[in-house]
Write a protein that binds this DNA or RNA. Structure first.
Length: 592
RNA sequence: GGUCGCGUAGCUCAGCUGGAUAGAGCAUCUGCCUUCUAAGCAGACGGUCGAAGGUUCGAAUCCUUCCGCGAUCACCA
């Protein structure tokens, strides 16, 4: 079915027969749209082995291929490029083979090693915001892509449910909350907790200002503000297991989880396993002791334990404090090992974490390798750029964030406005419409974020960022809906197989070529951990279909053979769009 | 200062394991709904690919230097 390996052989044969030399490899590329052809052989690299004029060599190889490979029907040579025209029969056969394949493009599960994908991992002191959305969408999508490419995948998150930031919200609630609950306030429960996080910061700033006016240095004031000291005391009480504090902690965390659940559900992401930092923050210490014995780490005079990474071009890095308490790195070492204990079949992990932690993960992976874990070779930091606003960075403390829930709601509203203006939804019930607006709004948001390279920063302008036209989620959904409309109106059994003896329209051929590269695009996306490749692929496919749709009649076609084929082709395009969008976590509507 | 990432059309982005005249969308302008959904299609306009060197038959892509933006270099997470 794949033509390329055959062509490699035949090109080699041709060169050997005519010039009596062996070329080690043959370079191909898809033929550019401006030229006639489907596959192009690049002649230039052969000039090292074959002396002569590239055009002449190309023509000779072309003659040979035309004669010896039945799939090649014509060729032309431009400069050093041999453009080959692949026969319609080849593409029609290809289509016949895959048209009824249900999971076309997807690899068999378990054909590759298992991977754990971590994403989201929020703090439990405030609601999720746009930055989390990027994280969630990326992590979820990469997990889906890995699954489709044959890996077994475990989705996980580590909930950062302890620490000083949590105590800040707790303390502020205690002090200013007057017993306010999600019920009594009517607020979404995670937003209520976030409100007190902001309240803490406000009170803290006020105290700093007060101290400064009393003549204290700024740094001194920041360190000694009473409310901060109290929060720190609360953290110590929590660690000591103080009943009162733990009770408050459980209650407020419960509120946050309830809120997160809603947001996750709205976003359409999920997890197979949750880890809580309150359970894992002590992990890793014994590993450090172990590594110390093995000589991976060393102890400084004050008793703290370090690793020397200067051979790798990095610094020394602390892994355990002098008083024996853990640092972030200690926990991460311990957690990684814990995961492999819990899921012994995993042979790799993906960490979806912002690029400000590039250095941390470089060090973490190095340490795990040095400790001798085989799976440490298969760790990947899915690093992504920040989401900035026109006004600058988002800061939860100061309340300058684009809230996740608000954003999703805004997308719904925009989708509703546009849909109403289009007026194509007669016959839909109120609930159906509402669901559809959500589907479209989310598609716009998700596609907008996933189509760009994760490494790049995103500048998000809430006023005008998310589009519904052009290279967007709704555009692709619209293409899908159009196809479904054709399928609904096709008043004959489209599954019957007919002889296909006609010539392909150029647009049909383009569509088949695009369908053909879906499996390799998926594999590439998996290797590169890149949903953007899937997004761009799907866009190209949709664009190609719309062009076809415009120029080639499907249902009005009188030739029954062609009509049958075009309906089947449209159906397949729809299926691929649906499958690809599923990898991005985006649903497709029957109508819109 | 060291390290890492980014810099492509007015804006948002593809292309980056080297290949033909650097591609899309938005915006601006022209056409196309008495054939299947105009959230569409067809076209016009728009570029010294941050700059300069180098490697190569060939560089947006690889190497070097420089410039700009960001992150990081905490016994914070």
């Amino acid at each position: 079915m794949d033509l390329q390996p055959l062509l490699v052989e035949k090109v080699k044969d041709a060169v050997k027969q005519m010039y009596d030399v062996e070329v080690p490899s043959v370079e191909f590329q898809p033929t550019r749209k401006d030229f006639e052809g489907d596959i192009t052989v690049v002649i230039f690299p052969m000039l090292r082995y074959v002396k002569g004029n590239p055009v002449e060599i190309g023509s000779k190889i072309g003659d040979y291929l035309q004669e010896h490979v039945e799939e090649i029907s014509r060729y032309n040579v431009v400069k050093g490029f041999l453009n080959l025209v692949v026969s319609d029969v080849f593409y029609l056969n290809f289509f016949n083979n895959i048209k009824n394949e249900e999971n076309y493009g997807f690899a068999e599960t378990n054909s590759k090693a298992s991977v754990m994908v971590e994403y989201s991992s929020p703090n439990t002191n405030k609601p999720l915001h746009l930055g989390h959305i990027r994280n969630n969408l990326l992590g979820y999508s990469v997990a889906e892509i890995l699954k489709a490419s044959g890996h077994k995948v475990y989705k996980t998150q580590i909930v950062n449910d302890r620490g000083i930031h949590i105590c800040k919200s707790m303390l502020a609630w205690q002090r200013f909350g007057n017993g306010e609950t999600p019920k009594s306030s009517g607020m979404k429960s995670d937003h209520l907790v976030g409100k007190y996080y902001v309240a803490f910061d406000k009170a803290y700033k006020a105290e700093i200002a007060q101290l400064k006016s009393e003549g204290k240095e700024k740094k001194e004031a920041e360190k000694t503000a009473p409310i901060l000291l109290e929060a720190q005391a609360m953290l110590r009480q929590w660690e000591a297991g103080d009943e009162e504090v733990v009770k408050l902690w459980k209650m407020m965390n419960g509120w946050v989880y309830a809120g997160f659940d809603t947001t996750y559900k709205n976003l359409g992401v999920d997890f197979d396993k949750l880890y809580y930092e309150s359970d894992t923050y002590l992990l890793g210490k014994d590993v450090v002791e172990d590594g110390l014995k093995k000589g991976v780490f060393f102890r400084k005079e004050d008793g703290s334990i370090w690793i020397d990474l200067s051979d790798e071009g990095l610094d020394e890095k602390i892994v355990l404090r002098a008083d024996g308490t853990a640092v972030y790195m200690t926990q991460d070492i311990g957690t990684a090992i814990q995961r492999v204990t819990d899921f012994p079949d995993i042979n790799g992990m993906v960490y979806t974490v912002g690029n400000e932690q590039d250095y941390h993960f470089k060090v973490l992976f190095l340490i795990l390798k040095k400790l001798g874990y085989t799976w440490a070779e298969q760790l990947y930091h899915l690093s992504y750029g920040m989401v900035d606003l026109p006004s600058g960075k988002m800061k939860s403390r100061e309340g300058t964030v684009v809230d996740a829930d608000d954003l999703i709601q805004n997308m719904d509203k925009t989708a509703e406005e546009i849909s109403k203006a289009q007026g194509k939804l007669e016959g839909y019930s109120k609930d159906e419409k509402k669901k559809l607006y959500r589907t479209i709004g989310l598609a716009a948001l998700k596609y907008y974020i996933l189509k760009v390279d994760p490494k790049k920063r995103i500048l998000f302008n809430p006023e005008e960022s998310v589009d519904f036209q052009g290279n967007t989620g709704p555009f692709i959904q619209y293409t899908y809906a159009r196809i479904q409309s054709i399928l609904r109106k096709a008043d004959f059994d489209i599954s019957t197989t007919r002889e296909m003896t006609f010539d392909l329209h150029a647009k049909e051929k383009e569509l088949l070529k695009q369908i053909q590269v879906f499996p390799e695009t998926l594999q590439l996306a998996a290797e590169n951990h890149s949903p953007a490749l899937i997004a761009n692929y799907t866009y190209d496919l949709a664009k190609e279909f719309n062009s076809f749709y415009q120029q080639v009649p499907v249902l009005p076609e009188v030739d029954q053979q062609k009509k049958q084929f075009r309906v089947q082709l449209s159906k397949k395009v729809g299926e691929v769009i649906q499958a690809a969008f599923k990898l991005l976590g985006i649903d497709v509507p029957e109508r819109m």
